[in-house]
Amino acid sequence: MKKLHECGALFALFFMGLSSCTSAPETPVAPTRQPAPAPVYHPPVVSHPAPPPKPVYKPMLEDQCGAAALQYLVGKPRTEIPVPLDPGKRRVVCSSCIVTQEYRSDRQTIVFSSETGIIESVKCG
């Protein structure tokens, strides 16, 4: 019986050992720290000053010098040009003549062909 008692004690120890091997409730494992992502390079934003506003096109007043009234002369000989009341506000030039480049909106410019004498254009300037 002593042997049975020893076997029983051994058997009890064996089961106690097995019971200690049972899994215990799992403890939560703290997540491992991930390395921070590498910083992404963003080039600096360069702000350029706004371009200057474009000049607004303002057409000149139509016919400031009265050239519309003389358009009937185009295609006619220069001898038909009427004598102006104010000669300082009209110039008559040939197409190959040298003239000054200043612009006067109140002056009529009558251009005739230097070869034929026929009026080519009547305009302000």
Rank of each mutant, 00 (worst) to 15 (best):
I98S: 03
E120I: 04
Q64P: 13
G8N: 10
Y41K: 08
G17N: 03
C65T: 09
M1S: 14
E62C: 11
A67P: 04
D106T: 15
F15L: 11
M1W: 11
R104Y: 12
P44N: 09
D86Q: 12
R78F: 00
C21I: 01
K123H: 09
C7P: 05
L18K: 08
V93A: 07
S47Y: 08
P37I: 06
V45T: 13
L18V: 00
P82L: 11
A38C: 01
A38Q: 11
T100E: 10
T109H: 02
E62A: 14
C65R: 04
L73H: 01
P77A: 07
D63L: 10
G117I: 03
L70C: 06
M1P: 06
P51T: 03
K89G: 06
E80Q: 08
A38M: 11
L18E: 02
H48Y: 14
E120R: 05
H5C: 03
C94I: 00
H42Y: 13
K58H: 15
R107C: 08
P87C: 10
G117F: 00
C65D: 09
D86T: 11
S23V: 13
Q34Y: 04
P25S: 13
G125H: 04
S105A: 14
L13P: 00
S114T: 04
A69M: 10
G66N: 06
V122C: 08
L61Q: 14
A67S: 15
V29I: 15
P59Q: 14
G8E: 11
E80T: 00
L10Y: 02
P43R: 12
G75F: 03
K54Y: 00
A38T: 12
Y57A: 09
D63Q: 10
A30D: 10
Q71C: 07
Y72A: 09
D63S: 05
F11D: 03
V122P: 00
V99A: 00
Y41F: 15
V40T: 15
C7D: 06
S113L: 04
P37L: 05
E115L: 08
H42P: 02
E120W: 03
H48N: 09
V45K: 13
V74F: 06
K54D: 08
R78G: 06
K89S: 12
P31E: 10
A68G: 14
A68T: 14
G125M: 08
Y103S: 07
I110H: 07
T22S: 09
S113I: 05
L4Q: 11
F14A: 07
Q71T: 13
Y103M: 00
C97H: 02
A30Y: 06
C124M: 09
A69W: 06
Q108L: 15
R107E: 07
H48C: 07
P43L: 06
R90I: 15
E62K: 13
A9D: 05
F11A: 02
P51S: 10
L18D: 03
C65H: 08
E120A: 05
Y41M: 04
K123W: 01
D86M: 11
P51M: 02
A69S: 15
E6A: 01
P84S: 13
T109P: 05
G117E: 06
R104E: 08
L73F: 04
P87N: 13
G117D: 09
S20D: 05
